[in-house]
Amino acid sequence: MNISLFTARWSPYIAGILVGVLATLSVVVTTAIIEKPKYLGASTTFVRAAGFIEKAVASEHVASNAYFQAKKVKVDWQMLFVVGVFAGALVSSRMGKTSKLETVPPIWQQRFGSSSVTRGVGAFIGGVILMFGARLAGGCPSGHGLSGNMQLSVSGLLALVCFMAGGIITARIVYGGGDK
């Protein structure tokens, strides 16, 4: 069981156990230091980032929008958490030598060909739909899936079941279930 930073891959069970410990420590540490429990989550950051971008062109519009008012367009714990995910994955992939330049993933290529434009359009449309859905549901696989279920919340379990059902049905239609 090698969990050196230079190892390409860790067992998902070992990494998962460490995520459970990290999530617990995050809540304990933030409660002790900043007196607010911070549970892992990612999707609200996209709302705040969109708010910052829109603010550059239409600041009054952002100020008057009820959702931006509710979520507060600011650089908070979670925004730096998401920046950290980028940094952590960057360091980890360099040290483990698993970083790879990829413009079209193989499963996509089998179905839609090797055009990076087609893949770009698909990824973009998927991104729009999934984020609209995540905000409507009130969270993503981090906030609902991990943090919600850790707290045994009804919303987390219901959301995770719906994420999976939607994903499994759509993947079968989009990529086909047949070929190995």
Partner: peptide, 27 residues
Amino acid sequence: IGGLLFGIGWAIAGYCPGTSVGALAEG
């Protein structure tokens, strides 16, 4: 409704919000 929509987009994009940022970092 939101969860099912999320699933549809997730399948097409192949990433969820947290993983998309990490995937970009690994190339």
